[in-house]
Amino acid sequence: MNITDVGFSATRRLILQGAGAVALIGLGNVPFGLTPAIAAANDRYPEEAFKQKSDADVIKTLYGKTAEPSDKVKMDAPEIAENGAVVPISVSTTLADVTSIAFLVSENPNVLIARYNIPAGTLPNVANRIKMAKTSNVTVLVEAGGKLYSASKEVKVTVGGCGG
């Protein structure tokens, strides 16, 4: 039994080494492969994007392209939020072929609040409630037809929602 075990693990080690080598070779292609990989991974939880500390880093990590402001993206947010723990924000757009919508708060410790995936047949209108640490710019990103559009608005917060 023991002998078989040793034999097995040795084989396993060889296989793993082989797999490692293949993986390393594969990594060489990453600079070209990265952007489509992010775009295609809409179904996976974007762990890295949620850790980013600036609007630009979130957009880069989540979409890998730049956003252009659009008046077809309508954000409904209060001018002044009395309670930063619960700020109701909604977005709608007249853009066609929307695939995802994201909410960003520039001054929060982690900028990305939420990303919603919009499959075909689902309307590009979303409402949610978010936390704001302090007065900040709120940005919504709308991915439509492979392009990225945005709208921003400053929301004043009188009582922060992230403690401290």
């Binding site: 708060v105 609040i113 995936n117």
Partner: peptide
């Protein structure tokens, strides 16, 4: 059997979260 909406959330969503959307079909 078809996914109509997915929310990816971070800690910036309010306690006892609320979300609203609409779909066709």
């Amino acid at each position: 059997g078809k996914n109509v909406f997915t929310a990816d959330w971070g800690g910036g969503i309010s306690k006892d979260p609320y979300v609203k959307f609409a779909f066709k079909g």
